[in-house]
């Protein structure tokens, strides 16, 4: 019985060594190529963002996300959001790619920079724009650019 026990344990160890076959998992990240807006572009409040980005993946794209937030105050986000006469603007939105898509050229004007939020004009200045992208397996890449938001001169 003792022999059997030891043999069983050895057999289990040996089986593990030979049976550990791993399917080819995909760990390759999708790529992001930002055409518009470019780093440092000045954009005006009340206007649409001309958004033009190429995404591609070795297998299948899943989603992308755009995150814009104020980079004033050293990116630490302001303490209180609605005290003074200006309010920092922030937006987050994600979109899904069509099923089976490996390459996508996205071009839209869906993101609109507001002039004011609840009647309070938005803070102008330096903003960060982050673009995230995932593939079907959850591999993720992202890119960040800086944009400047200004009031249109009247």
């Amino acid at each position: 019985m003792i022999k059997r026990f030891v043999i069983l344990t050895v057999a289990l160890l040996a089986t593990a060594l030979f049976s550990a076959c791993e399917k080819d998992g995909d760990t390759q990240k999708p790529t992001i190529n930002i055409i518009e807006p470019t780093d440092g572009t000045e954009l005006l409040t009340g206007e649409e963002i001309h958004f033009e980005v190429e995404f591609s993946d070795n297998q299948e794209l899943k989603s992308y996300k755009v995150d814009i937030h104020s980079a004033e105050d050293g990116h630490s986000h302001t303490k209180s959001m609605s005290t003074d006469e200006h309010i920092p603007w922030a937006m987050q939105k994600s979109w899904d790619f069509e099923v089976g898509q490996k390459n996508a050229h996205i071009h839209h004007h869906e993101i609109v920079i507001p002039t004011a939020i609840d009647g309070v004009p938005i803070e102008t200045g330096h903003y960060h724009m982050l673009i995230y992208c995932t593939d079907k397996e959850g591999n993720e890449s992202w890119k960040a650019i800086g944009i400047a938001i200004a009031m249109p001169t009247k």
Binding site: K62, S63, K65, D67, H69, H77, A90, Q92, K93, S94, D96, Y132, T134, D135, K136, E137, G138, N139, E140
Partner: peptide, 17 residues
């Protein structure tokens, strides 16, 4: 598991920085 999605699995949009 990385879901590849930016929304909660129940469909809610996630609005965190």
């Amino acid at each position: 598991n990385p879901t590849g999605s930016y929304n909660h699995p129940d469909g809610t949009e996630i609005a965190e920085a």
